[in-house]
Structure formats: structure tokens, C-alpha cells
Design a protein around this nucleic acid. Structure first.
Ligand SMILES: [Zn+2]
Ligand SMILES: [Zn+2]
Ligand SMILES: [Zn+2]
Ligand SMILES: [Zn+2]
Lengths: 161, 161
DNA sequence: GCGGGTTTGTTACAGTGTATCACCGCCGCC
DNA sequence: GGCGGCGGTGATACACTGTAACAAACCCGC
């Protein structure tokens, strides 16, 4: 069922996220380099969907340019480690504060007005999808489920200004 | 529930598809122009996911160039009329031989080996997703559900060559 | 025929993602 | 110490995807 902590936990301090990233990398014998750290910080700090070029621009400063290709490499790494998700419908990236069970389906709730992306999960959806695929004789390798709409916060804000 | 006719019906003759397109356009007072017809023919004929540039190249011939931008415009039109779907995870397009109820969710089953895309639907998934969104206080405007994997035909072919 | 909306052609451009190669830093090995 | 492999980074170039802008052609009703 849906045991989700809400937006605040999703954007749980940059510190927690970085600590987790360090732990993950140490545990797997991988390098958590300065570039990877900066990219993850940028993704977490903004909290909304961001394109790779946005991140590159944000990390660049007069005299220190970070090329998009470097950002892509860092994002690929972070995605492999489950620290970042890619939102296919937006060509953009968000941090992941969860610890997804391997193979568990994630539902992305993308707010079109504030750009915040919440994550949810549902045994019911998961089960129904599995049965549907089985019935169709289809062997899934990986699926994406992205919903665009308005989050509760934005709806409240718009209705009672 | 899933009342789907299978791949053959999906790729049901080009003729059926064109007849339906003509009917739809006439009924709605829209023009089914030669370009739109050619683009739809190309999408139907191949039957697999195709990028807009693939279609443009396919329609181009020595002496007669079809620019990608024209293809995009035709595809936009065909999508608005429900004759073509866009597959977000592939930046590609497929024909739709179904008559979807407005607002009904579609599940795309994308075979990574043959490129054929099947469509399915499931009340169970639909309902579970609706309840999950409601619980999260999220008002959906539109969602995509795309599954990548291996279709039955390819699995059979690979196992018994 | 004329005027106004729609469709198409053409060009240019913005946005997204990858290939390639060179360089660097590190670590293990001789 | 010297050497070679290996992973990460920088830099450039390029491919792929999609859109903006404007002009020309087309259609249709008046
Ligand atoms: Zn996540
Ligand atoms: Zn919002
Ligand atoms: Zn369809
Ligand atoms: Zn297949």
C-alpha cells in the first residue's frame, strides 16, 4: 500500500541525501566524486524536475564551466545507484529519497504548476498490471508510470489565496 | 477488462485504418489531406515504433523531400484525432486501431526486440491508480503507462528457432 | 474574382543526448 | 622509482528531437 511520507520527506534535507549517497557508494566500492556530489546537490536543492542542461547551467560559474555531457555522466551514475530518477515525459530528473525494493514499480506524480514530483506506489496497480501483462503474453523488463496534474498544495493555494 | 484483439488486429490492414481516418475527418469537418494520409500510411505500414525523422525519410524520395516539421504537424493532427499515439519513452509514434473511450487509460506494451507496440487496458490498474492519486491528494490531468519487455511472438521465436 | 482561414514548404534555431579522444589521478605491479 | 591499466573528467563535435517564424499555396464560401 501507499506508505509515503509526503513532500517534505521527499525533499528531506540535502544532508540526509548526501549521507545516504556516501553510504551507498562506500558500501558498493564506488566513488562519490566531487562532480557527482555537486550534481546530486543541485538536483536535491531545487526539488523540482530539472533538465540536464539546467543543472549544468546551475553548476557553472564565471570561470568554471560544467559541460552538459559531464552532468549526463553523473546523472547516469546516480540513476544506476538509485539516487535519482529520470522523468521520461519531461526529459528531466529528480532526486529519490526512497529506498525502493528492487523491481518495485514507482508512480510519479508530476505537478504541472509547481514542478514538484511526488512518488507513490500501489500493490493494487502493481498486481493489476502484472496480471494484464501476463494475460497479454508479455514479459516486462521495466515500466514507467507518470501522472501529470495538480498537487494538493497547488490546488489549495489556488482555491484560497 | 482486457478485450483486445491482438497484434494482427492492431496492424489491421492499412485500408481499414485509412477508411476510419477518412470517416473521422469527414464527421468532424476536418481535412484528411494527402500529406496526412501519407504519414498515417507510413505509420501503419511499418507497424513498429518510428521516430518522426524515420517517417520523414521514408516519405522522401529523390526529388520529393518531406521535411520533419511537416511530419510533426501531421502527427500532431493525427494524435488529436486519436489515430496515432506518441510513445514518450521512445520519442516515437505508433498507429492506434482502437476507439478509446475518452479518458480511458492505455497501457503500452513495447517489445524491445521487434519494436511492435501492443495496447492494453485494465479496470483494475485504472481503479487502483485513481485511488492512489486520491489518497495522495493529487488531481490528475493525464497519465502515461509504458511497459518495455518482450512480446509473446519474440519469446516463442527465440526459444524455438 | 476576392478575402480569410487552413495547410504546406522552407529556413533557422532550440533542446536533448551521445561518440570520441585526450588528459589526469590513482593504484597495483615490476 | 618506473610503468601500465582503469575509472573519471574535460572538451569538441555531432546526432537526434522538436519548435518558431514567415511566406507561398490551397480551399471554400461569398
Ligand atoms: Zn524513488
Ligand atoms: Zn504543485
Ligand atoms: Zn490506442
Ligand atoms: Zn516482439
Amino acid at each position: 500500500m501507499h506508505r509515503h511520507e509526503g513532500h517534505d520527506a521527499c525533499r528531506s534535507g540535502t544532508r540526509d541525501m548526501l549521507a545516504r549517497a556516501e553510504a551507498v557508494c562506500r558500501e558498493r566500492g564506488l566513488q562519490f566524486t566531487p562532480l557527482r556530489r555537486e550534481v546530486l546537490e543541485a538536483v536535491v536543492a531545487v526539488g523540482k524536475v530539472q533538465g540536464a542542461y539546467d543543472i549544468a547551467e546551475r553548476l557553472s560559474a564565471p570561470g568554471k564551466r560544467v559541460a552538459p555531457v559531464s552532468v549526463y555522466r553523473a546523472l547516469d551514475f546516480l540513476m544506476e545507484q538509485g539516487l535519482v530518477h529520470r522523468i521520461a515525459s519531461r526529459n528531466a530528473f529528480i532526486p529519490c529519497a526512497h529506498d525502493h525494493a528492487p523491481g518495485a514499480g514507482v508512480i510519479f506524480l508530476i505537478c504541472r504548476s509547481c514542478g514538484v514530483v511526488d512518488e507513490a506506489s500501489s500493490e493494487e496497480v502493481e498486481g493489476g498490471l502484472g496480471r494484464t501483462l501476463k494475460r497479454a503474453g508479455f514479459t516486462p523488463s521495466h515500466s514507467i508510470l507518470e501522472v501529470e496534474g495538480d498537487c494538493g498544495a497547488c490546488r489549495d493555494r489556488d482555491q484560497a489565496p
